[in-house]
Nucleic acid binder design. Structure first.
Length: 594
RNA sequence: GGGGGUGUAGCUCAGUUGGUUAGAGCGAUCGCCUGUCACGCGAUAGGUCGAGGGUUCGAGUCCCUUCACUCCCGCCA
């Protein structure tokens, strides 16, 4: 018999009454009646109420023990009387009458209470993460994460995928995020990089003939944090398949995601076959390539309206003439909304750094007219044209933004979220997935005017390889796709370019010489010239999937030992300084900015 | 790199127009209490008001600088 316990803290029931048992766990809560003491004993599985009174020689000792101490109790299971049953607890029909106890782990005065639903400052939670993780909500989140990952593994094996590990110490790559660098002792002056993703390795696995690969892969990117983005490291369900087209990958991933979300959440899926939205359409209708499809608001382009003679909104007309765009959002039946509703949104837009949002409400007395600060600038015919383009009806309001296309996309995208929130249009009990497809292969850097890869340089361009229009690279689309859920980017993937000549050509457009490509991507470009199968894949973010399933807004709530916003681990004191010897051995000297 | 929010007891927070000795709940310590499950009751301890500087007869409160945490922009193929 195990010396610490005969049962865990969640399994004793009426059937066990009169049994002598041993339980071990943390003291979750004490209720001391002076001559009678209740102790809620907690372990990973649940809580059992234990009881002792002054007739027991241990009573005085047990009374004094700190919460969160670890103790072992020997006692007898007794049925509770009907009026003392606690229906909140699985073990609420019984209690353990303590005979003797032993302290297994003492506990100092707590820096933060464990048994409480209160929220605490992030700093203290992270410093004492081992205490924070005892708290029910986050404890359950971490267990959920484990179950989700186990489920995904099992589904992937069922689908015929093989799991492989890829190197953590690898080479730095010029594209993408900043790398974490690791100095090499045996090769002074040279550095490994931690992988931003196992991108090249998984393609090499395909070239090696393994057909279907997956991995719950750690990825490292040295970029600044956000609520849904851990600094430093995160996990992807990395996968790759040979001899597939885009649609084959969609089939596999849709099935997997639908299974996972149905299994681990009671929320409904808006559609089980995810809508496929071309990138250009998404940018127009939602102003973003990660639209929240729970939000019914749609953006329309009204630039042409501002070239009409019977529209006299001169500021916008002037901007449109010089190449700016006008985009708008229609809100249904908002004519009764107070002036403050509209002004707040305009004020909010200014706070976001935009020049504000113009608005009016469509009315009809004898004729169609527009009510609002800028309503007078629009003729009846112009309003009818706007209504035709946007689908707006009498009683609806229209918000306008004007600016350079990137700026106007950004502010209308944010306004779409903001207005929907203000009008309470978003159903929180839905997961709305979609595929964003047909990404452009290249984009122009606004600052340098150089052509750059817009996503993944290894993606296959669309169309007949022999007839791709390399003269107009910005028109080339790629077999590149993202999954988006409720406005959160869950993953991106692509059909890869497995043709070396084509790869060199695309890299040359982005300003890379052949020799540079050979050097920077030596492993892969070399492999592609020794019989590479057509292949493609995707890499859904595990942390974000669990975050959605756990209904959390912050990724730290589903990460066991996260770092803070400045990429510091407050519990382990990482990163830390190293001593002179270590630096010397690596051939490094520090030259810090003061 | 830039912008916003927060910072008062171990924890969560209140603190009025600048005005006496900075408060509450939880936690801790001590005492009372035999059916609680957020047990109850009483008492005690606990404060560099994030730090530094300034204005003022007087600063938790106003001003400047700075630090920490956090959210956002940039960044994240």
């Amino acid at each position: 018999m195990n010396k610490y316990r005969t049962h865990n803290c969640n399994e004793l029931m009426q059937d066990n009454s009169e049994q002598e048992v041993i339980l071990s766990g943390w003291i979750n809560k004490k209720r001391d009646h002076g001559n009678l003491l209740f102790i809620d004993l907690r372990d990973n599985y649940g809580i059992t109420q234990c009881i002792i009174d002054k007739s027991n020689e241990n009573f005085k000792l047990l009374e004094k023990i700190q919460l969160e101490s670890v103790i072992k109790v020997n006692g007898k299971v007794v049925k509770r009387s009907a009026d003392t049953i606690n229906s909140e607890l699985k073990t609420g029909e019984i209690e353990v009458d303590i005979n003797s106890f032993e302290v297994l782990g003492t506990c100092k005065e707590l820096p933060m209470p464990v048994f409480s639903d209160q929220e605490y400052a992030e700093e203290i939670r992270l410093k004492y993460r081992f205490l924070d993780l005892r708290r029910k909500k986050i404890h359950d989140n971490i267990i959920l994460r484990s179950k989700v990952i186990a489920f995904i593994r099992s589904e992937m094996f069922k689908l015929g995928f093989l799991e492989f590990q890829t190197p953590i110490l690898t080479s730095s790559s010029p594209e993408g995020a900043r790398d974490f660098l690791v100095p090499s002792r045996l090769n002074p002056g040279k550095f490994y990089a931690l992988p931003q993703a196992p991108q090249q390795f998984k393609q090499l696995i395909m070239v090696s003939g393994f057909d279907k690969y997956f991995q719950i892969a750690p990825c490292f990117r040295d970029e600044d944090a956000r609520a849904d983005r851990s600094p430093g490291e995160f996990y992807q369900l990395d996968m790759e398949m040979s001899f597939v087209e885009q649609e084959d990958i969609f089939q596999v991933v849709e099935k997997l995601i639908v299974n996972v979300f149905k299994n681990f959440s009671s929320k409904k899926l808006m559609k089980e076959k995810f809508p496929r939205i071309p990138y250009d359409e998404s940018m127009l209708k939602y102003g973003s390539d990660k639209p929240d499809l729970r939000n019914p608001l749609i953006i329309s382009d009204l630039s042409n309206i501002f070239t009409r003679e019977d529209v006299t909104f001169e500021i916008f007309k002037k901007l449109v003439k010089s190449g700016s765009k006008v985009r708008c959002i229609v809100t249904k039946n908002t004519k009764e909304k107070p002036r403050s509703f509209f002004d707040n949104i305009d004020k909010w837009a200014k706070e976001q750094g935009a020049s504000g949002l113009a608005y009016f409400t469509i009315e009809k007395n004898e004729n169609i007219s527009a009510k609002g600060p800028v309503g007078k600038f629009f003729s009846k015919e112009a309003l009818e044209a706007i209504m035709k383009i946007t689908g707006a009806e009498v009683g609806d309001s229209i918000f306008f933004a004007c600016g350079k296309i990137n700026d106007v996309e950004k502010i209308t995208s944010q306004a779409r979220d903001k207005i929907a929130k203000d009008l309470d249009l978003i159903d929180e009990n839905i997961f709305a997935f979609c595929w964003i497809v047909n990404y452009p292969m290249f984009e122009k850097n606004e600052v340098t005017s150089k052509i750059e890869f817009s996503h993944n340089p290894f993606s296959m361009p669309q169309g007949d390889i022999k007839n791709i229009d390399f003269e107009n690279p910005l028109n080339i689309k790629a077999y590149q796709y993202d999954i988006v859920c409720n406005g959160i980017e869950l993953s991106s993937g692509a059909i890869r370019n497995h043709v070396p000549e084509l790869m060199y050509k695309l890299f040359s457009i982005a300003g890379y010489e052949k020799a540079q490509v050979d050097e920077k991507f030596s492993g892969m470009i070399n492999a592609l010239s020794y019989g590479a199968p057509p292949h493609g894949g995707i890499a859904p973010g595990i942390d974000r999937i669990v975050m959605l399933l756990a209904n959390e807004k912050n990724i730290r709530e589903v990460t066991m030992f996260p770092m803070n916003q400045n990429a510091q681990d407050l519990m382990m004191n990482a990163p830390s300084e190293v001593n002179e010897e270590q630096l010397k051995e690596l051939g490094l000297a520090l030259k810090l900015k003061k």
